[in-house]
Computed example of a mutant assay.
Amino acid sequence: MLGSEEAEGWDNQLENEPILNLGWHKAWWVQDDLGGLEMEYGPHTSVALGNLYTYAGTGGTLRFGQGLDNSFGIPSVAPAMSLRQGFLPGKSFGWYGFVGVEGRYMAHNLLLDGNTFEDSHEVDRREWVGDLKAGVAINWGDWQLAYTAVWRTKEFEAQEESDRFGSLTLSTWL
């Protein structure tokens, strides 16, 4: 129905294992005006260490719109650009668009390298991976609707095309 390849079955799945991952992320934001629009931009860096992902990454992000003080960060899709994102409740209508880029050196990716403690399937992983991310978010009162699109470079050698995926998120304060 979706045009995807047929799954290889349960015999090819990774085994269950506990995950322990530590991550650190730091962004430096500069605020400015862009022809009547608010704008934030700046570099960021991130590091993760664990049996799910071990990587170091760096990149930059631009965020523009109205009411940027009512929200922070951009919606993220792991493992890249893990910027903390959120919004403040009870604020007036606001919106923002964003675009960002990140490069990562992936020292370990359990999903491609296979299980840590048992023999399992694996692929020839590429060590350098990059993402381009763009999207839009709308805030009103205690609600936020956000769409994020990600274009990721090939993550392993036999991969025929780079990945393209997205996320649509509706959030509210309780």
Rank of each mutant, 00 (worst) to 15 (best):
D119K: 14
T153V: 02
A158W: 05
R104W: 04
A149R: 12
R152P: 06
N115C: 09
N109A: 15
E160N: 08
R152M: 00
L145N: 08
E155Y: 02
D142S: 07
L112E: 09
V136R: 00
G141I: 11
E155F: 02
D131G: 00
N115E: 10
E155T: 06
W140L: 12
E127H: 11
H121G: 14
A137I: 09
L112T: 05
R126H: 14
A107I: 08
E122C: 08
Q144L: 11
D113M: 10
L145D: 06
T116M: 07
D142N: 15
E155A: 03
F117S: 13
L111E: 14
V123T: 08
E155L: 01
E127V: 08
A134M: 10
S162M: 04
D131L: 01
K133V: 14
V136P: 02
L132K: 00
W151G: 04
W143Y: 15
Y147W: 08
W143L: 14
F156S: 02
T148L: 03
V150L: 09
R104K: 08
Y147K: 04
R125K: 13
V150N: 11
A107L: 12
A146C: 03
A149S: 06
A158S: 15
E161M: 00
H108Q: 14
L111D: 12
Y105D: 10
F117G: 00
V123C: 02
E161I: 00
V136I: 10
I138W: 04
L132H: 05
W143F: 15
V123M: 02
T153N: 01
D131R: 01
H108D: 13
W140K: 13
L112F: 04
V123R: 00
G103Q: 11
V150R: 05
G114T: 06
G141K: 15
W143G: 07
E127R: 12
G135M: 01
E160T: 10
E161R: 08
D119L: 12
N139A: 10
G135A: 01
G141F: 10
M106G: 05
Y105V: 10
A134R: 06
S120I: 09
E122V: 05
D124R: 06
A158E: 15
G114Q: 05
M106D: 15
H121Y: 12
L132E: 05
K154D: 03
R152Y: 00
A158L: 11
R126E: 13
D142F: 08
G130Q: 07
D113V: 10
Q144M: 14
